[in-house]
Design a protein around this nucleic acid. Structure first.
Length: 889
DNA sequence: CTTGGCTGAATTT
DNA sequence: TAAATTCAG
């Protein structure tokens, strides 16, 4: 009954924002990074196997364009693509060694981990991130004006069901002006209690996408690897979305789009339904698409399958998946295996011992490494084997406890287990011939237990503290420092934001006067929008595309058709290139303002295309997991298409024009629905609700910053008067000592790096000329009612603070006073050191922590109280979105 | 003459 | 609990 996986409550089904990060053809990228000379060439990774050039296990996008796929032999790939580079996975101990890729995966995961403690590694190249907290935080900041979306973070973003991301943004913007735009539909499709979450779904997912953009940028910058991502309210949908635009893209799956998506989504595309169960489902229900499942009642499904699966299906078909993102950085088991097919069957005892020795050796190596990193030892081992018994393949597995182990004991255990469970182990009359040939061997170890010592305990605490700091500094990169700047910055941002809303409404009002007012109530007004509905139009087109395509090839098309796939921003740029002779689209004020932004975007894209010149697949590779039939001819040969300047023709204009919807006018009265305030407040309380059923959030959040402090006798710093902080602080000094040499060399490296990447565009502060000449897009134009105002005009993060005393930390991007930089770097050094020495499964630790504490619920309540009071104190001067909507200013 | 090889998690019995 | 099976990457 008790399923091992934890779930959130049904009530929180739309409360989370979940990210699935998926590395693009990861093994290939690892090889390309290792061999820069291979970059920009078609490449595949093969597992060594003398037959037909080895088996392909990964293909980069340049090679895919030539038709190379997995399930191919190296030779076939050569036929299709003679210039292809075939990388062999290294062979150690006569078997494939994938440690290189495991390490690379860990490198990536280390970056991901900075963004949330709720990181679940799903495989070597995939991870789920629950970013709900960050999103909620930014949501609040957005309301206070302290945070604005950065356009460059959405450059590679798509939203399912929308031709481009701009349309999606547009829709959200419109809903800001009229929160009840879609309520009629909402109330028909959703439970009353879900409406608050439903109304905020889109904006929260969009913020999630901006986080995703940062995550992916960080991965790219720090590891060199590119990845795709999916953003949704749960794992299943995030995973689904991530596959829809690849590579190096991210995809939002809006709540309201899941139903129509599922209507034509083959059942097998859902994770968990890709195998036998999925087929059984299709057969017994007589269906093909996910959307068809909704016709069956829950009990019906439970009767046809079992209770658990029935409920699961029922929920999934509605886009509901409650499975929690379970923090796990390290695997629960370590194993390796090898097949011995055909003539390679193991028939002799000596051979068996040899291979057991090889496998054990690898296991042992990996266990050693794991022990150093994670302070844990395996307590259990399993040996699996397939024997040939009377021509039949018989699989078996036997296990035993492990207390102490080394390579030899693992071999011995394995052999003993096999021997003890084989009726006649040796062929009668022989001392060395096996009675049953072995066709497969595997050893895996698991059930790890932490080795605890006083030393480890200290390190544990240190890790805790480091994690906490990471969380604090990671959540809002670059926030703490800019002190003097901050005030001014924040103020203007806030004003901007307010102006945005205010102007939006005013603009609408003006238009109202012109277009002899029609509207009576907001709902009617929205639905009676004179302009065409793009979603509808898009779907219509999509439908046509589906029909022709399906007719042609018998496949189903559910993803965005290629001709719609240009990013909003590139289209936007195109539009701008046409130098506003299209005056009717935007006001003059707007187009001025917009011009600046266009330049900026131009720069961004130009920069992008410079950075990724080699990325031929970027725009041309348009296949997705779902859109299986790929037009052959169109892949052209790319590379040059990247330049925005060459993009200036074709459909761009039309699409852009359509994105710039102007809503019908609204009067002030119409803008304050009577129930508005209460409904929007509901989500604030329900927003934190999901945590209560979310086990991981039961970890008490100690607010050490609220505790009294005492002075450290070594450095005079004020330390929270609490045993763990004190110990941690002492560890800090200890680490300082320990890493002195390491630190200085690292520091050198850092300064070198910093100098290398020191932003050329930042002009020397002294230059007197630059002050007034602001021809740049920087000059703050008055806010207007274009959706552009939704974004901040400048990426604030990248702006170096004017104070020459400040430096940006290359590690965490925070701005630090120069004098404090050494100490700040020490923190990172210590953190890294710590990570090297002792990386411990977060969850087991927090679980232990929980048990120590008195009732977690109580603690939580207390800290919650404190938090609430501080929050309300600090935000007393700010307004909620609801207030923006309901008031008339 | 295959076999895509290997890895890891989870569920069911 | 141990063993077998399934699923996915």
């Amino acid at each position: 009954m008790s399923s091992a996986r934890s779930h959130v409550s049904m009530q929180s089904k739309y409360d989370r924002v979940v990210l699935l990060v998926d590395m693009d053809c990861f093994f290939c990228q690892v090889e390309e990074k290792q061999h820069p000379e291979y970059r920009n060439r078609p490449l595949a990774v093969v597992q060594y196997n003398p037959w037909r050039g080895g088996g392909i296990i990964a293909v980069n996008y340049a090679a895919r364009a030539k038709g190379v796929t997995r399930h191919m032999r190296g030779d076939e790939a050569k036929d299709l693509c003679p210039e292809i580079v075939l990388c062999q996975v290294p062979n150690i101990r006569e078997k494939a060694d994938t440690s290189k890729y495991r390490d690379a995966g860990k490198e990536v995961a280390n970056v991901l981990q900075r963004f949330t403690q709720l990181l679940e590694r799903a495989s070597v190249d995939e991870a789920y991130l629950d970013i709900t907290e960050t999103v909620n935080h930014r949501m609040q900041q957005m309301q206070s004006g302290a945070f604005a979306l950065q356009p460059q973070e959405l450059v590679n973003t798509f939203a399912v069901g929308y031709p481009n991301i701009g349309d999606y943004v547009n829709k959200i913007t419109n809903r800001f002006a009229n929160p009840y735009m879609d309520d009629e539909r909402y109330q028909m499709s959703y439970d009353q209690n879900d409406l608050p979450a439903v109304r905020q779904s889109d904006i929260r997912l969009l913020i999630g996408a901006s986080v995703a953009g940062e995550v992916r940028a960080a991965v790219k910058k720090e590891t060199g690897y590119e990845c795709s991502a999916g953003i949704a309210h749960n794992k299943i949908l995030a995973k689904l979305a991530a596959g829809m635009n690849k590579p190096n893209k991210q995809t939002i799956l809006p709540l309201a789009e899941t139903a129509s998506l599922f209507d034509s989504l083959p059942v097998g595309k859902i994770k968990g339904l890709g195998g036998k169960f999925g087929e059984v489902v299709c057969d017994t229900l007589g269906i093909k698409f996910m959307g068809q499942v909704v016709k069956f009642s829950e009990v019906e499904l439970q009767r046809k399958f079992d209770e658990k699966n029935g409920t699961w299906l029922f929920n999934i078909s509605r886009g509901i998946d409650l499975e929690a993102v379970t923090p796990r950085f390290y695997s629960k088991s370590i194993g390796c295996c090898k097949k011995f097919p055909g003539r390679n069957n193991i028939t002799g005892l000596k051979t068996l011992q040899h291979w057991l020795g090889e496998l054990s050796s690898e296991i042992n190596d990996r266990l050693e490494k794991d022990f150093i990193e994670n302070n844990r030892r395996a307590k259990h081992m399993v040996v699996q084997y397939v024997q040939d018994i009377d021509g039949e393949e018989v699989a078996s597995s036997r296990s035993t406890a492990l207390k102490d182990y080394d390579q030899e004991s693992i071999v011995r255990f394995s052999l003993d287990l096999i021997r003890a469970n084989t009726k006649t182990f040796l062929r009668p009359g022989s001392e060395s011939a096996l009675n049953n040939a072995i066709k497969f061997l595997g050893i895996s170890v698991g059930k790890f237990e932490a080795v605890s010592s006083a030393q480890n305990r200290l390190q544990e605490m240190f890790a805790n503290q480091a994690a906490k700091k990471r969380r604090i500094s990671g959540e809002e990169p670059g926030q703490p420092p800019q002190v003097q700047m901050e005030k001014k910055q924040k103020q203007t941002e806030e004003v901007k934001m307010k102006n945005f809303f205010a102007n939006y409404l005013q603009g609408a009002k003006k238009e109202d006067a012109k277009a002899d007012g029609i509207s009576v109530n907001p709902l009617a007004a929205a639905s009676a929008a004179p302009k065409k509905n793009f979603v509808e139009e898009y779907k219509q087109k999509l439908h046509e595309a589906v029909r022709t395509e399906a007719a042609a090839e018998g496949t189903v098309l559910t993803s965005t058709p290629p001709e719609f796939k240009e990013s909003f921003f590139s289209q936007y740029l195109k539009q701008q290139k046409k130098t506003g002779d299209q005056g009717s689209v935007t006001s003059k004020e707007d187009s001025l303002d917009v011009q600046g932004l266009a330049e900026e975007l131009d720069a961004i894209e130009a920069d992008n295309s410079k950075d990724f010149e080699e990325d031929t697949e970027e725009e041309t590779e348009l296949t997705s997991d779902i859109h299986m039939s790929k037009p052959e001819g169109q892949s052209s040969d790319a590379g040059q298409e990247q330049d925005p300047n060459t993009l200036s023709d074709s459909t761009g204009k039309d699409v852009y024009v359509k994105t710039d919807i102007v809503l019908p006018p609204l009067t002030e009265d119409e803008l304050k629905p009577s129930t508005s305030k209460r409904k929007f407040d509901e989500i604030e309380s329900s927003g934190s609700n999901y945590k209560e059923s979310y086990v991981e959030f039961a970890v008490p959040n100690l607010r050490i910053d609220l505790l009294p402090t005492i002075k450290c006798d070594q450095c005079g710093a004020n330390i929270p008067d609490e045993v763990k902080s004190l110990q941690t602080h002492r560890d800090h000094h200890f680490a300082q000592e320990l890493s002195r040499t390491l630190r200085s060399t690292e520091r050198e490296e850092r300064t070198q790096i910093r100098q290398k990447i020191s932003p050329k565009p930042t002009p020397p502060k002294k230059s007197k000329k630059t002050a007034g000449s602001g021809s740049s897009s920087n000059s703050t134009a008055p806010p207007s009612n274009s959706i552009i105002k939704f974004f901040s005009a400048k990426p604030t993060q990248e702006q170096a603070p004017s104070d020459p005393q400040m430096q940006q930390c290359t590690e965490c991007k925070a701005f630090i006073k120069c004098v404090d930089m050494p100490e700040h770097l020490d923190y990172h050094v210590a953190k890294n050191l710590q990570r090297e020495l002792n990386q411990q499964d977060l969850r087991t630790r927090t679980a232990a922590l929980n048990n120590e504490k008195t009732s977690p619920a109580q603690t939580k309540k207390q800290t919650q109280k404190k938090l609430n009071s501080t929050i309300s104190a600090s935000s007393s001067g700010t307004k909620t979105i609801a207030q923006f909507f309901s008031q008339s200013n």
